[in-house]
Design a protein around this nucleic acid. Structure first.
Lengths: 223, 223
DNA sequence: CAAATATAATAGTATTACTATCAATTACAG
DNA sequence: CTGTAATTGATAGTAATACTATTATATTTG
């Protein structure tokens, strides 16, 4: 399964880049190192100039791939959610029991990514950390509606819709399947953040997992 | 009760301002109009220069009250959560039934603020909208830990702790009281945002309230 | 090997997020 | 009601950001 994913090229909305970074060495270097640099200094302090210095390339060359750092973050997010969606589809496909299927989906969507899975230039573990800290910022902007229309959040919404269907499969009478699904996906990012920075307002820790909380929650809510 | 609140001066961590905006006309104008302007153009596009133009004052004068727009947003957030905390304490104080008490708390924390409550210079309804769009950004920064130590998020955490206690009062055996409480507070902001910008991934709407979802959730989870 | 394409280097612009200085106004204290 | 302090306003200046444009130099490919 991991090998399958490693060989897969994850495709991302074309409007997010000027030139597809997957088509060149420089492009891949941009992706690889932007992930590391954003993680190191945070998205606010991250600039194309700094990235250029790190990869021994020029600011202007990076602009040939991405219009802005916001688009780059949208690209990284989109890539991340596509990757999660593949995992979600492959790993739940053969599960027939609805509750078991939903539980597996919750694990995939909420668990911390600990290992760098692949041979690829993308370190999924660091990307996961970026998503926790930065993903919310991609849509909390004045341009959301516009960018939503352009399809920049399609994969993210698609994951939530898949989970919604799984919830409905467990209990077709539950009135808030969509809200529950979107709460799990966004809420788990938030709980990961609390675990790191606001330990006093979460019960979750290394030993007490986020997936357990949500699986307990859906069992009590849906059964 | 509304009158009581209207006359109350809500106090905010002193480290958040250079000069207390409550002590002068200009200060109050800054608060009043920053809320309106941030709501209009979003926090990213908001600058002290633009605010100065709007209130016919000077950029440099605004810097005498707040070090940066980030501190100003922290101030507004802190003010908002203090105000919510007052409502929470006053309105749940005399309720003895634990479930009823928790339900009331959930309504206070999750409901949309529709009316501008007071005679004050602060429009709570618009402030509520800002919190929905911008509050998360106050802590998703590289400076969180530092600012958390300085107590910038104390009121927010205090609200979550109060709700945690109420949850434990309903069911002392529930293992995730803190996580549930923090999920409700942050999650409701997120659901309000979805209602506005991503309608397809929430069941909530004008007629289907966020409070109902969470009250249903806690009943199923705790009873 | 020539032409096309990709990348690098440099320069330039408007805006942001401030700091510093000094002048003008207002407040308030004796 | 006047002098002093405090507040506010106006102006200027700085380093950094988020780009665009232009030209030069590599590199690829047909």
């Amino acid at each position: 399964m991991d090998n399958l994913l490693a060989n897969l090229t994850i495709s991302v909305n074309e409007k997010l880049y000027v030139k597809n970074p997957e088509t060149s060495d420089l492009g891949k270097k941009i992706i690889e190192n932007s992930i590391i640099l954003i993680h190191e200094i945070g998205f606010e302090a991250f600039t194309f100039k700094k990235l250029g210095e790190r990869i021994q390339s020029n600011e202007s060359s990076i602009y040939r791939y991405f219009e802005s750092k916001h688009k780059l973050l949208l690209y990284l997010s989109s890539w991340y959610w596509s990757w999660i969606q593949y995992k979600l589809v492959f790993e739940t496909n053969n599960i027939s029991n609805p509750l078991e299927k939903l539980s597996k989906a919750i694990i995939i969507v909420t668990e911390e990514i600990k290992e760098d899975v692949s041979i690829r230039h993308i370190d999924e573990s660091i990307l996961n950390k970026i998503i926790i800290c930065e993903f919310t910022k991609t849509f909390l902007t004045k341009e959301v509606d516009e960018e939503n229309k352009k399809g920049f959040f399609l994969v993210y919404k698609s994951i939530i819709n898949r989970i919604t269907l799984m919830i409905e499969d467990v209990n077709p009478n539950y009135k808030y399947a969509k809200t529950l699904a979107s709460s799990i996906v966004e809420g788990s990012l938030h709980q990961h953040y609390l675990k790191e920075h606001f330990k006093t307002i979460t019960n979750l820790s290394e030993s007490n997992s986020i997936s357990d909380f949500y699986i307990d929650l859906i069992k009590k809510t849906l059964l």
